Simulated scan of single mutants.
Amino acid sequence: MGRGITPLWRHRQREQFARAVEALPGDTDPAFADELAVVTLLREAAATSGPDEATRARMRERVLGASPSPPTKVDRRRPRSGAHGRLAVALVAALCLVFSLAGMSLLLSRDALPGDALYGVKRTAESASLGLTFGEESKGYKRLEFASARVSELEILVDRYRDAGGGPLGGYLTALADFDADAAAGSRVLAAFGSGSDRRALGSLRDWATSHTTRLGGLRGSLPVDAATRAGTSLDLLARIAQRAADLAARGQCATVTSGRFDQVGPVPATGDCVAPPVEPTTTSTTDLPAVPASPPATSGVPPTTAPAPPGAGTTPGVPPRTTEPTLPLPSLTVSITPPVQLPTLTLPSLPLPGLTG
């Protein structure tokens, strides 16, 4: 059973027992005779089993005669380790919360459209990705990729608000303005790169401008009136980009490709006559010349001669006289003989050995 309220009679009984214990030995209450007898025995045991007066005096003198220990200094300042720990935990929790919210915002902003609350977060993420892109050519293509995303957002807005009368005008205007900024920036980078290093960048820029002219032109009829008027500016920009890429590519074989000036879409092509760049003369090394075969030794046109027969030759009947073969001149051969190198003569002193004379 749980602890309940003590009855009133129990309180009264405890008070009576306490008064009986504190009363004089002669004033005992017969109702607590047994309990008072036990109390009396405990008092007598404490008096007989405890130390006597002499022992108590010695104990008192020993305690009082001992030198008091110096009081310990208690640092009442509040410990700071706990406060620093709680502050560090709070900062870590705050950072985790910020990172988690930023990650969720980035994930949710991937599908944000112009005019949405998270569209600014999406554009900030694109700027960060552009900062992590290395190389001028890669940055130019990244800009064109952003511009293509703006056209895709316009297509989504048209499909979403096709039955609602066009939707918010601010979203269309924002997408077109961002498209122009990214397309012009990408054109400036790729046109400069293509006119100086790689001509293929100019072809890619021209093809991109042509394809997006087709996309934006087909989408223009579905835009609101004001947005359709604004889309005309973007189409003019695409036409300028395509023409600029073609003009720079046409002067690819000229000594001067650009005029040194820049405008919104990139370097301005030169207007002078197309003069081919000078060809540097090439020097032919003697090692590249073909080897001339050595001419055979010239032979003399002297016909072979017959040596006169020695005396007595031909006296033998039936034996024809002996003829000698023609003699050909032999080429002179010069052989250089290097004399051997004469080594120096070393003379060792004689060492006297025991048992030997001389």
Score class of each variant (00 low, 15 high):
Pro51Tyr: 01
Asp52Lys: 01
Thr40Ser: 09
Ala83Tyr: 03
Ala33Asp: 12
Asp75Thr: 02
Thr72Asn: 07
Glu53Phe: 03
Leu42Ile: 02
Ala45Asp: 08
Ala46Glu: 15
Val89Ala: 14
Ala47Phe: 02
Asp52Tyr: 06
Val38Gln: 01
Thr48Trp: 10
Val63Gln: 12
Val63Ser: 12
Pro68Ala: 15
Arg77Thr: 14
Pro70Val: 01
Arg80Asp: 06
Lys73Ala: 15
Leu42Glu: 09
Phe32Lys: 06
Arg60Val: 07
Leu64Met: 13
Leu24Gln: 15
Pro25Leu: 04
Leu87Thr: 11
Gly50Lys: 01
Leu64Trp: 10
Asp75Val: 03
Ala37Gln: 07
Glu61Lys: 11
Pro71Trp: 11
Ala90Arg: 08
Ser49Cys: 13
Thr28His: 02
Val74Arg: 05
Ala83Pro: 04
Ala47Cys: 01
Val89Ile: 14
Arg56Ile: 05
Asp75Ile: 02
Ala66Trp: 10
Pro30Asp: 05
Asp27Asn: 14
Arg76Ser: 14
Leu41Ile: 03
Glu53Lys: 07
Asp52Ala: 05
Ser49Val: 06
Thr40Gly: 07
Glu53Thr: 06
Arg86Cys: 06
Val38Arg: 02
Ser81Lys: 13
Pro25Ser: 04
Glu35Val: 06
Lys73Cys: 13
Ala90Leu: 15
Gly82Pro: 00
Pro68Asn: 11
Ala46Lys: 05
Leu64Ser: 08
Met59Phe: 12
Thr48Cys: 09
Asp75Leu: 09
Asp75Ser: 07
Ser67Tyr: 14
Leu41Val: 03
Ser67Cys: 13
Thr28Glu: 09
Arg62Ser: 14
Asp29Val: 05
Val63Tyr: 13
Ala83Leu: 13
Gly85Phe: 01
Asp34Ile: 02
Ala37Arg: 05
Arg60Tyr: 11
Val39Gly: 04
Ala83Cys: 08
Glu61Pro: 00
Val89Gly: 07
Thr55Val: 11
Met59Glu: 15
Ala33Tyr: 03
Thr40Arg: 08
Lys73Val: 15
Ala57Tyr: 09
Ala54Cys: 06
Ala90Trp: 04
Arg77Pro: 00
Arg78Leu: 11
Ala83Gln: 13
Pro71Gln: 13
Pro25Gly: 05
Val89Glu: 09
Ser49Arg: 08
Ala90His: 08
Pro51Glu: 06
Glu44Met: 00
Asp52Arg: 05
Gly65Cys: 06
Pro25Cys: 01
Arg80Gly: 08
Gly50Ala: 08
Gly82Ile: 03
Thr72Cys: 09
Glu61Thr: 07
Ala66His: 10
Val39Lys: 00
Arg43His: 09
Ser69Val: 13
Thr48His: 12
Arg56Asp: 05
Val38Leu: 08
Leu24Met: 13
Ala83Lys: 14
Ala54Gln: 10
Val39Thr: 06
Pro71Ser: 14
Leu64His: 06
Glu44Val: 04
Asp29His: 00
Pro30Lys: 01
Leu87Met: 12
Arg77Ala: 15
His84Asp: 10
Val39Cys: 11
Leu87Asn: 11
Leu87Lys: 14
Ala37Lys: 02
Arg43Glu: 10
Ala33Arg: 13
Arg60Ser: 12
Asp75Asn: 08
Pro70Tyr: 03
Pro70Ser: 07
Arg76Met: 15
Asp52Val: 00
Gly50His: 04
Arg76Glu: 15
Thr28Ala: 05
Phe32Arg: 00
Glu53Ala: 10
Val74Pro: 03
Pro68Ser: 13
Val38Trp: 00
Ala66Ser: 12
Arg77Tyr: 07
Lys73Asp: 12
Ala83Asp: 10
